[in-house]
Design a protein around this nucleic acid. Structure first.
Lengths: 225, 225
DNA sequence: ATAAATTTAGACACGCTTGTCTAATTCGTC
DNA sequence: GACGAATTAGACAAGCGTGTCTAAATTTAT
């Protein structure tokens, strides 16, 4: 209601700074303690803000949770699709480029603070808010899978890969990427760059052993040996 | 204190039945609502028991959570190692037997009610009880990985597979097994037998494309072509 | 410097949950 | 049928968390 009806100026500077810090603190606390376990006083304290300010910005607790999820979702999706755009469509060195892509995917999307928060929040609260879960699934994993599947299909068409079902290949690629990192992801620990690189290397090596064409260059005509 | 000091009879029949039903209900509610969100009245109601009985059996709420986790962990580990024992050590049809093994693993351990409960409980409460998380990790995933890695190493030694790092192969096998089921697992839905079989087939097919020996039978001498 | 908007600390009512206690009731056994 | 153990319903105090309110202090823009 009292947000800022007309934008003579987008918002007071301290105002939006506090809004941000509230959302960040709330995300941390919701993740750590769960919705019911998170208490507003703690969120306010971690945000360096008074309790009343939290209520001024976001109404009640339920609303705050939704704001947190929307905030993280938006940022997370932006990062995700920016990263997907760097997929190696016309690779010179497929293995190296896929590894680099996998590293980016892990760093920017899956192992990032946002990515982990979002997954844990959805997993904790999804059972109580089915439409929340459905929305996340449709906009997150399902879109990721289908986008990635399209890229892999292209690589198959251009003869770089030999793939029966691109959707399966996409899911397997993502599963392999995380095979070595799942345990760390479950706890608070953030994966080292070295660990991420190693995980990506292992994953891509196996993925390519499975999906690299077995006969040399059965490519579609316009690629000549 | 008032459990049953001497076992003239192990415990009243209704007594242990109620204990079981309390643990089951508590597991459900803790999973659904989180530790703080779970309330004893609800657990008692779902167990078909009075609130006081819950306190009689398990002291306070914290204690009840520990009892639930211990209960599920024990059952879960028993199933896990029973299933691991059915690994195809001397396969005639490696692909078929690995698929069957993967199906058993998913049905008995990963997609089972206990498996899902345990994972969600640990993920929710692990951050607040580090030793809980550590115990689960050491007894669950780490042991699974190492047991599975040993089996794969054996298959590699006998020439059925060509594996650089058996630990990596084991993690990748498990990751592939779940690639198609992760989303369903996150929600309440239980995977169909058909889905589990299909997921296992996809996984094993890819796994074997990656790890089956490329040159025919470079086996260790005693296997003759 | 002044006026408007925002933030703050604190107090407050209200509801819910935990854990205990008691007295009545049911259950299993002899 | 009678006994003891377990279970039950209900009341209860104490603590905590939410959300509201007020009056003072602080920030921001004019």
């Amino acid at each position: 209601m009292k947000e800022n009806p007309f934008p003579h100026f987008p918002a007071a500077r301290g105002h939006s700074a506090k809004r941000t810090s509230i959302l960040e603190a709330a995300a941390r606390v919701f993740c750590r303690e769960g919705f019911t376990g998170a208490n507003i006083d703690l969120i306010a304290a971690e945000a360096g803000v008074s309790r009343q300010t939290v209520y001024n910005h976001h109404g009640d607790k339920e609303n705050l949770l939704l704001a947190v999820i929307k905030d993280i979702t938006d940022r997370s999706n932006a990062g995700l699709f920016a990263t997907l755009a760097t997929f190696p469509d016309q690779p010179k060195d497929l293995e190296a480029e896929l590894i680099a892509f996998a590293v980016r995917l892990n760093q920017n999307c899956i192992c990032s603070k946002d990515g982990k928060f979002l997954r844990k929040l959805i997993e904790s609260e999804g059972e109580r808010n089915p439409e929340l879960f459905a929305g996340w699934r449709d906009e997150g994993p399902l879109k990721t899978w289908s986008a990635l599947a399209a890229r892999f299909a292209r690589l198959a068409y251009s003869g770089h890969l030999e793939i029966d079902d691109p959707d399966v290949a996409a899911r397997q690629f993502l599963a392999l990427i995380n095979a070595d990192l799942q345990l760390q992801a479950m706890f608070g620990e953030i994966a080292t760059d070295e660990q991420i690189r190693s995980a990506a290397t292992n994953a891509v090596r196996t993925f390519l052993r499975a999906y690299r064409p077995r006969v040399e260059k059965p490519a579609p005509a316009h690629v000549s040996a």
